[in-house]
Design a protein around this nucleic acid. Structure first.
Lengths: 238, 238
DNA sequence: GAGTGGTCTAGACCACACG
DNA sequence: GTGTGGTCTAGACCACTCT
């Protein structure tokens, strides 16, 4: 079991690992909460919080009076319920992720980005354009704008672990909290087609996101174009 | 305070009402959890579950060590934290919605639909194909499969208020609870292009949804293809 | 240091599913 | 009836923020 953080997170991670390795196959029943509580040496409340996380992540489903059941997982997908990093998402599903930086420049952002970031006209941003590769194949293009004032070293320093969000947290102490996303479909232009090795005008999933820190202050505008093979998933629990 | 359901739901509703009426204005601090627990005559754990719901709905934000604060509400976007119908979504934004039924048949569903609905090979479904028009223009195609066993009259009776979900509730007593959606991009095939009056291979936003009732029993598989002009907007609150 | 939210315990009773 | 998840109590200690 993992060795850091609250117990319920450790237990959740441990169960998630067990699910990933097939200890509990799809449609099978998890041990009861009482059973798990005994096994992990915690109270049932703590186990419940762990399982709650698995439910939110769409890994299991509870049925009152019957039990907790393992859900079959989609091939490759990205959860939309929480703010996540592309790298983490894919690695959590056991894929090998590479990132190629296409360009990194200090630029005056376009007007819509500037207003989303609540910057004045003279403010500079770092524009970062990356291509994501999963198992060696390009699957997504990401273009991010980050206010230079918030992350002065971003224009030159390497990203920690290849991830912008990890860099935010570990270098700048910025915790991502909320986000607003707009999702639509587009046809690949020539540059996108080249980067993703697709025919011109192939359909792409476009996500435009404004990310906010814990003070609800905007920290990033990101546009992502993804191959249709990697759908977004969202689990709604009323 | 509301008079039904678990206490934490009643407390959440009560607090939500207080927020809506301005008892706690934006940026103000809620009473501490200990204080609220005393006021409602419950333990702090119960208050925490109530407040948790407000956080998920994007009404308040917690800051460890500081307090729980009221968030200003976004004007336009509707949080996608509940399962909604296309009709409701669009009408809520002031658009006029029309629905044209393209076909309604009793069919043996394709394999993927059958397994999502957990049906056996002989089971029949009602396949309903509709085109949605907003302000007179076709903007979306919806194709739904519903197990015939659950809704025997669906193959012939009119939909209540033109809405499948209203029909579920009022005719069959089925309360929609959870849903799982996969979002991706596709290129319009010939039939879709005709129905939506688009060039062949235009990009479309595709949403595939499995809807579950209160027992987490699947009640509908729906595929929706929407024009890129109508993006999905999603607000995430960690 | 005082006050707040974050985690956890060790019980209890209830509502529901299933054989 | 038995076992399961759903709710709730009455405490406790910790981590964090603010002054």
């Amino acid at each position: 079991m993992a060795a850091s953080g609250p117990k319920y997170v450790q237990i959740k991670d441990d169960l998630a690992a067990a699910l990933a390795t097939g200890t509990y196959p799809p449609d099978s029943k998890l041990p009861s909460e009482t059973e798990l509580a005994g096994r992990y040496g915690v109270t049932r409340m703590t186990v419940r919080r762990a399982v709650e996380g698995l439910v939110v992540d769409g890994l299991v489903s509870r049925r009152h009076g019957a039990g907790t059941f393992v859900l079959a997982q989609a091939e490759m997908s990205r959860p939309l319920n929480r703010v996540t990093s592309f790298t983490e998402d894919m690695r959590a599903q056991g894929y090998e992720v590479e990132t190629r930086i296409v360009s990194r420049e200090e630029v005056t952002p376009p007007g819509d980005v500037r207003s989303a970031l609540r910057l004045d006209e003279s403010a500079l941003t770092v524009r970062l354009e990356r291509v994501r590769l999963v198992n060696g194949e390009p699957v997504a293009i990401q273009r991010s704008w980050v206010p230079l004032g918030r992350c002065p070293g971003l224009a030159r320093d390497d990203l920690v672990d290849g991830s912008l969000y990890v860099t935010f947290k570990s270098v700048y102490g910025i915790q991502i909290k909320n986000a607003r996303q707009q999702i639509t479909a587009t046809a690949a232009d020539q540059q996108q087609a080249n980067l993703l090795r697709l025919p011109l005008r192939s359909p792409l999933l476009e996500v435009r996101r404004t990310t906010l820190d814990h003070n609800n202050s905007p920290i990033e505008v990101a546009e992502t174009w993804t191959l249709p093979d990697i759908p977004l998933t969202i689990e709604l629990n009323n």
